[in-house]
Design a protein around this nucleic acid. Structure first.
Lengths: 198, 198
DNA sequence: AGTAGACCAAATGACAGTTTGAGTCGAATA
DNA sequence: TATTCGACTCAAACTGTCATTTGGTCTACT
C-alpha cells in the first residue's frame, strides 16, 4: 500500500521535476504534453493518469516553486533573531529572489501576457504566504516590545500594504522585464520605516 | 503675425480637445485620423498640416493630460503649508487621480497591452515631474527643520524609491484594471513614515 | 493498477485576398 | 503665402480557409 503510494508520488515528482526543466527552457505554451511524456520516457496518455491535464502539471510545478522559494526566504529570515533584522532579511531576500526568478524563467516572462490568469492565481498564493509572514514578523516585534509604535491591529493593515506594494513591484518587474532600481534605496527606506515603528 | 500664430494654436488646441474626447471614448487604436478630421470639420490631410502624424496628436493630448493632472495635484499640495501635510496631500490626491484616470479612459486601459511603449514614454514624463515634486517637498521639510532624520542627500534616494513604488502601483492598476486596495492602509503607512523622518 | 495507441475536437499557424487607415503630393483656394 | 483638400500609395490589419498540432478521451492490452 504505502509502497504503491510512494511509487505513485515518485513518478509524479519526476514528472514535476522534468516539466519544470522544460518550462524553464521553453515556457508554458511551447512545452507540449508530448514533450513532457518523452522526457519521462512514457506515453503521453500516461501523464493523464497522474494529472488531470497540462494545467495541473503546471500548478504542481508552480506549487513546488512557491514552496521552495518561500522556504528559502523563511530560511533566511530565521537566521535572525530580532524582528527588525528578520524584516530586513525578508526584504533583501525577497528582492534577490525576484531577480533570480526573472532570470530563471525568461521564456515564461516573455509569454506572461498570454497566461495572465494562471500566473495571477499562482502569484496570489505566494502573496498570501508572504503577507502572513510579514504579519507574523510584525506581530512578533510588537509582542516582544521591539516595535513600540504600532499595535497588534496595525500589523494586519501594514502587512496588506506591504504585500500590495511588493505585488506592484512584481508586476512592474514582469512587465518591464527587470527589477526596478530600488535596491540601492532599500537601506534608507528600511531605516526610516524602522524608526517609524520602533 | 501674432494673429496667425494665435489662430494656428487655436486650431491645434481644438484638434487636441476633440481628439481627447475621441480617445476617451474609443481608445487610441480605434480612433482614426479620419474620425478626428470629421469632428473638426476638416479634411484628413489638413491634420498633417498641424501635426506630423497620429502619434504626435496623441502626445499632444497626453501632454495636456499630464499638465492638467500634475497641475491639479500641485494645487492640492499647495493648499498646505507644512511639508508633512504637503506630502500627505500629495499621496492622497495621487491615488484619487489614479482612480479617476482609470475610469476616464476605459478604452485605453483595455488596449494598454498593445501600445505599451507609448504609454511608457508618457508615463515616464509624468513620473519625472512627480519624482521632482516629492524631492522638493522632502527638501523643503529638511530645510525647515521639520524632517530631522533625513539629510538633503537622502531626499533624492527617497524620491526615487517613492516614485518607483508609485510606478509599480500604476502598472498594477492598469494591468489589474483597478486601484490596489491600499487606500485604507495609506493613513497608517503615512504616519509611520512620518515618525520615521520627522 | 499502469501503460500505450488510436482517435477526436479545439486551438494554432500559414496563407491568399481584401479592407482599412496612416501618411504623401500636387493642385486648388483665398 | 498660408490653408485646405481629393486622390493616391503602401504597409498593416483583418477575413476566411485549410492543414497541422496538441490537449484530452477512450479502449484495450498486460
Amino acid at each position: 500500500m504505502t509502497n504503491k503510494i510512494k511509487k505513485n508520488d515518485q513518478i509524479k515528482a519526476d514528472i514535476v521535476k522534468k516539466s519544470r526543466e522544460l518550462f524553464k527552457r521553453f515556457g508554458l505554451n511551447k512545452t507540449t504534453m508530448e514533450d513532457i511524456a518523452q522526457t519521462i520516457s512514457k506515453g503521453k496518455s500516461t501523464l493523464y493518469y497522474y494529472f488531470t491535464g497540462k494545467e495541473e502539471v503546471f500548478y504542481a510545478v508552480a506549487q513546488k516553486e512557491i514552496s521552495d522559494t518561500f522556504g528559502s526566504i523563511m530560511e533566511e529570515v530565521e537566521k535572525h533573531n530580532s524582528a527588525q533584522e528578520r524584516l530586513r532579511a525578508f526584504f533583501l531576500k525577497r528582492f534577490d529572489v525576484l531577480e533570480e526568478k526573472l532570470n530563471t524563467y525568461p521564456a515564461m516572462v516573455r509569454e506572461q501576457k498570454k497566461n495572465i490568469e494562471i500566473f495571477h492565481k499562482i502569484h496570489l498564493e505566494f502573496s498570501l504566504l508572504e503577507r502572513n509572514l510579514i504579519k507574523e514578523i510584525l506581530f512578533y516585534g510588537v509582542k516582544s516590545g521591539e516595535f513600540k509604535h504600532i499595535s497588534k491591529k496595525d500589523c494586519d493593515s501594514l502587512a496588506i500594504a506591504a504585500s500590495t506594494i511588493l505585488n506592484g513591484i512584481d508586476i512592474y518587474t514582469f512587465v518591464e522585464g527587470n527589477v526596478p532600481p530600488i535596491g540601492d534605496q532599500l537601506d534608507i527606506l528600511f531605516s526610516i520605516t524602522m524608526r517609524g515603528i520602533k
